[in-house]
Simulated assay, not measured.
Amino acid sequence: MTDMLTHLSGLAPFPDYDFNEFGETETVALSRIQKLTGAHLGRNWIAVPHVTHHDEVDVTQLEADRKAWNDAHPEAKLTPVILLVRALAQALAQFPTFNASLSSDGKSLVLKKYVNIGVAVDTPKGLVVPVLRDASTRPIADLAAELVQLADKAKAKGLSMADMAGGSMTVSSLGHIGGTAFTPLINVPEVAILGATAIQLRPYPDGDGAIGWRKMLPLSLSYDHRVINGADAARFVRAIGAALLAGDLVPA
């Protein structure tokens, strides 16, 4: 890392513009969260060789099951994000190198026996990542309720370091806004991050040769290429898709 930063120090500096030459401007201070996030993500992007794998998963039946659950349980609604959290947790059990961290000297891999999933939350002061613990075993309604509580806490008064520590992997969803794909930056010391965008309607041939429509969820997996190769990344996203298709994520 030191050698890399020394090499980067030889690059030309960013120009210091006086933007008032071009018109009226206003300067506003970055929030503490924005400054911390920027510093960490800047380091992560420089130090970690990112690759992003994109795929789509058919969630037509899952969305029907989720809607039926929410209609029957308005006090305990499930979001697509919490179902993705559960599917990711299940996939991590099959792929231990994704539930890992690279040692600081880069010579060994720490394999985690716990499955804690971080979920990126957008707040007025910047992005934070609360962690849902034991995400593969706890009742999914409990996970959904806790995520709501943590998101509300993040927006109202902020999260403690304990709320954000100990993640296995992070989910970052833009599905409530839109988009079809993006490149999420890895939340080091994790070795991968899963991005999701808005569910898309896609034409699909049915058994009679006619065209029907399916609900497809775009997924974007960014991974540390020092730890994970492209083939395993593709298999991992397929495993997440299989979990979403299995039909058992939404309680009966």
Rank of each mutant, 00 (worst) to 15 (best):
L150P: 03
P218V: 00
E146R: 08
L8Y: 13
G241P: 05
S31E: 01
S108H: 09
G175C: 15
L147N: 00
P189G: 05
T27V: 14
A154Y: 03
L88Q: 05
D71W: 00
V148W: 03
A181M: 12
N187G: 01
D55L: 06
R238H: 04
E75R: 10
G10V: 05
V171A: 03
K153A: 12
D152W: 02
D58Q: 01
K107G: 10
T197A: 14
F19H: 13
N44H: 13
L174R: 06
A196L: 09
T183L: 08
V131L: 08
A198G: 15
D224L: 12
I82V: 12
V110S: 15
V121P: 09
V129S: 06
S9G: 14
I211E: 11
D122W: 11
A165L: 10
I193T: 01
A156R: 15
A239P: 08
H54Y: 14
L5S: 13
L30C: 13
L5C: 06
G118E: 04
T170L: 06
V250Y: 03
D208Y: 00
V131H: 07
A29S: 14
L159V: 03
A154V: 02
S222W: 02
N116C: 05
T170H: 07
V119I: 09
D122T: 08
H40L: 12
K67G: 00
V59C: 07
D105S: 06
A120N: 04
K77P: 03
D65C: 00
S222C: 06
I199K: 14
A243T: 04
T137C: 11
G126L: 11
P130H: 06
A198I: 07
L102Q: 08
K77W: 01
N99F: 06
M161T: 10
L84Q: 11
R138V: 02
P189Y: 02
L217T: 08
K215I: 06
P96I: 05
D55T: 11
L111V: 13
G209C: 06
G10F: 00
F236N: 05
V28E: 14
V129D: 07
R238F: 00
S222V: 05
W213L: 15
K112F: 02
S104N: 12
L194I: 02
R214F: 09
W69A: 00
G209D: 04
Y204A: 14
A145P: 03
A192R: 01
I240Q: 05
T79S: 15
A198M: 13
V59P: 03
A144Y: 12
A242W: 01
L78D: 05
E26T: 15
S220P: 01
L249I: 01
G126T: 08
G167W: 00
V81S: 13
D163L: 02
M4Y: 13
M4A: 15
N70E: 02
E63F: 10
H54A: 09
V51N: 03
I211M: 15
T60E: 04
S160P: 03
A47H: 10
I211Q: 14
L127I: 10
V237L: 13
P130T: 08
I33H: 07
W69L: 01
A72T: 10
